[in-house]
C-alpha cells in the first residue's frame, strides 16, 4: 500500500470516527428531549373557532376530523343550533331545515321536548357548521375531533399548518382525545 493510500485510509477512518461520535452525541442530546410515548394530533375544542379548514386541508378526503358529540354536555333541545338552519321553517328533519350539508346528524325523539343528536361519522366531513351553531347558542356539546381510526398521523399535520387558532396540538397516544364534557354546572 502506497504512502498516499495509507494516509488516505487514516484520514477516512478519523473522519468516520468523528462522524460516528457526533451522531452519537446528537442522539444523546435528543434523547434528553424524547419520550417513550407516541404522539398523535388532536383538536383542542376550546381553542377551535370552527373555521372550516379541517374539512378542506386534511390530506385525507374526506377529512379525518369529524364532529363528535359530548352527550353529557348536550341540552337535548328541540331547537338545536347545531342541527337546524338559522332560518328554518319548522323544527324537523326536512332538507330545507338541516344545517349539515351531508345530513350527517341524526335527530331522534327521546321524550317531550327532548331530542338526541347523533353524528353519522361515515357521512360527516368535518366542516364544523354544526359546531359553530352549537357553540354559538348551545352548550357546545358538538365539537371537532381527529378520529384516530382514520388519521394517518402525518409528521406535520396539514390542518395544524393552517389552523388559525393553533387548536391542533400533539397529545400522547395514551390519551388521544380531548372530548368536552364531564361538565357540572356550578
Amino acid at each position: 500500500m502506497s504512502k498516499i493510500q495509507s494516509r488516505r485510509k487514516f484520514i477516512r477512518s478519523i473522519t468516520r470516527y468523528s462522524l460516528g461520535f457526533s451522531l452519537a452525541a446528537l442522539t444523546g442530546f435528543s434523547l434528553g428531549k424524547a419520550t417513550k410515548s407516541e404522539w398523535v394530533w388532536q383538536i383542542d375544542p376550546f381553542k377551535c373557532t370552527s373555521c372550516g379548514r379541517c374539512a378542506t386541508d386534511c390530506v385525507l378526503n374526506p377529512s379525518a376530523v369529524k364532529c363528535v358529540h359530548a352527550y353529557d354536555l348536550c341540552g337535548y333541545c328541540d331547537l338545536c343550533g347545531g342541527y337546524l338552519e338559522p332560518g328554518h321553517i319548522s323544527r324537523d328533519t326536512a332538507a330545507e331545515n338541516q344545517l349539515c350539508p351531508t345530513a350527517a346528524i341524526e335527530r331522534r325523539f327521546i321524550e317531550a321536548p327532548y331530542y338526541e343528536y347523533k353524528i353519522k361519522e361515515d357521512l360527516c366531513i368535518g366542516c364544523a357548521k354544526c359546531v359553530e351553531g352549537c357553540t354559538a347558542f348551545g352548550n357546545g356539546s358538538l365539537h371537532l375531533q381527529v378520529r384516530h381510526n382514520l388519521c394517518t398521523n402525518c409528521n406535520e399535520c396539514a390542518i395544524a399548518r393552517v389552523c388559525p387558532s393553533d387548536a391542533v396540538i400533539r397529545v400522547k397516544a395514551e390519551v388521544p382525545y380531548l372530548i368536552k364534557g364531564g361538565f357540572t354546572p356550578e
Binding site: 332560518g87 321553517i89 326536512a94 332538507a95 330545507e96 338541516q98 350539508p101 345530513a103
Partner: peptide, 24 residues
C-alpha cells in the same frame, strides 16, 4: 333556502330544495 324564508308556504319550492339537496 333564502327564498323559502320569504315565502314559507311554497310547497313547490320545498320540493325543489329537497330534490336539490339529494342531488347535491
Amino acid at each position: 333556502v333564502a327564498r323559502l324564508s320569504s315565502e314559507p308556504g311554497n310547497e313547490e319550492l320545498i320540493r325543489e330544495i329537497r330534490q336539490m339537496d339529494l342531488l347535491a
